[in-house]
Design a protein around this nucleic acid. Structure first.
Length: 383
DNA sequence: AATCCGGGGAC
DNA sequence: GTCCCAGGATT
């Protein structure tokens, strides 16, 4: 399909370039398959600079397959706090437990076994097999598709599954004998450092001479990628409920369900605002508390919590891949005699009254961390 | 094939 | 503001 000369040139030049120019990254300092695995999961949709501190902390806290297998899930989630895509953490621990039980703690080295692990797809399987075990398997991610689409002038939409399959076939053919790990990492390194999305640095590229995309003046137009749909807007009311009496100095948090968005993460109670539109919100004193009280009161009543008066505290925003949250945070109290210490009616088990110090024990999405930190900071300044 | 699932850095 | 990143699971 593509000329043997163009392919051989690419493989040889890229491999030698990588060995001379590779960055000194934490997970490149060992061939520990467990550490390689952790790094690959963390690096999914996440930049190297973001991952580095998380990787150090995670490996330090869970140094072996056995240690992670035996850890409480809450601690694993807390170690992942802020990284996003939290199912990665839960799938990783689930898969690590399987490796501990089924393979005696040794990460398997066959395609079938690695691919079968939870959270390990075509890319990650290839990455673990090639980097940790030097097996000649392709590891095709966004970087690799960008590099290959430019060098070989491939105009297929990289969002299509069929294109990834095509790229995997090509990438596998390019792997030099006995150098799968270095070559695959070189492909990604080139994409990260030279063949970058916006303005590729062709003049420093080790394979520019035979790059078809460059020759055609197409390097900036590739890869072809269908645009994603914009996230749908959602307006929400958030309740920052301050404890009274025996709970003075604490705020009320709750844990999300085990499935879906931000699964098992902790958060402040919140409710969808009726009419997700952008109706005239912020005045100088903030939005009207009345509709917020109505929505939050109904929401909290379902958990047996009564809501006292609200006053506006701050706005907040958060964008997921598919949802854009516009939040208005209100301060209030739980106006509910049944929750006094002497009452027999307990707080539902997925709720907690916590102090600022106890925040450290719970994993929060970043948007709620920001709100809580702003709150505790302001309260400290006021006292 | 389309949708769900976070967060942040570069521009 | 826009893009997109060392993707995978689910439907």
């Amino acid at each position: 399909m593509y000329s043997t000369e163009q392919k051989q040139y690419f493989s040889e030049k890229l491999l030698s370039w990588y060995r001379r120019h590779k960055r000194d990254l934490p997970w490149r300092r060992s061939r520990n398959p467990y550490h390689i695995w952790i790094s690959e999961i963390m690096l999914q949709q996440t930049r190297v600079e973001t991952v580095i501190p998380y990787f150090h902390r995670f490996v330090d806290k869970f140094p072996t397959v056995e240690a992670l297998a035996e850890a409480p899930e809450d601690e694993v989630l807390k170690a992942w706090e802020g990284l996003g895509y939290y199912s990665r953490a839960r799938n990783l621990q689930s898969a690590v437990r399987e490796v501990q039980e089924r393979y005696g703690g040794v990460v398997p080295d066959t395609k079938e076994e690695v691919f079968a692990l939870k959270g390990v797809g075509p890319y990650t399987a290839g990455a673990i097999l090639s980097i940790a075990y030097n097996k000649p398997e392709p590891a095709v991610d966004g970087n690799v598709m960008r590099v290959l689409s430019r060098y070989f002038l491939i105009e297929e939409d990289i969002m299509k599954g069929s294109t990834r399959v095509l790229m995997e076939k090509l990438a596998k053919e390019l792997i030099p004998e006995g150098a799968a790990g270095d070559f695959n990492q070189g492909l990604m390194e080139l994409g990260a450092m030279v063949c970058t999305p916006k303005s590729p640095h062709c003049l420093t590229c080790p394979v520019m001479l035979h790059c078809s995309g460059r020759a055609a003046g197409m390097e900036a137009e590739l890869p072809v990628k269908k645009k994603a749909k914009p996230p749908r807007p959602e307006s929400r009311y958030v309740a920052l409920l301050e404890g009274t009496g025996g709970q003075a100095g604490r705020v009320l948090i709750r844990q999300r369900p085990a499935e879906g968005l931000l699964a098992r993460m902790w958060e402040l109670p919140h409710a969808l605002a009726p009419g997700t539109g952008t109706d005239g919100r912020d005045t100088a004193q903030g939005p009207d508390p009345a509709p917020a009280h109505e929505a939050l009161a109904e929401h909290l009543d379902a958990d047996g919590l009564g809501l006292g008066e609200l006053r506006w505290f701050m706005p907040a925003e958060h964008t997921f891949s598919h949802i854009h949250w516009e939040l208005d945070v209100f301060l209030g109290t739980v106006d509910n005699p049944s929750l006094l210490p002497e009452s027999s009616a307990p707080l539902p088990s997925h709720y907690r009254w916590i102090t600022r110090e106890e925040m450290e024990q719970y994993a929060f999405p970043n948007v709620f961390l920001r709100i809580l930190k702003a709150y505790f900071k302001e309260r400290e300044g006021a006292s």
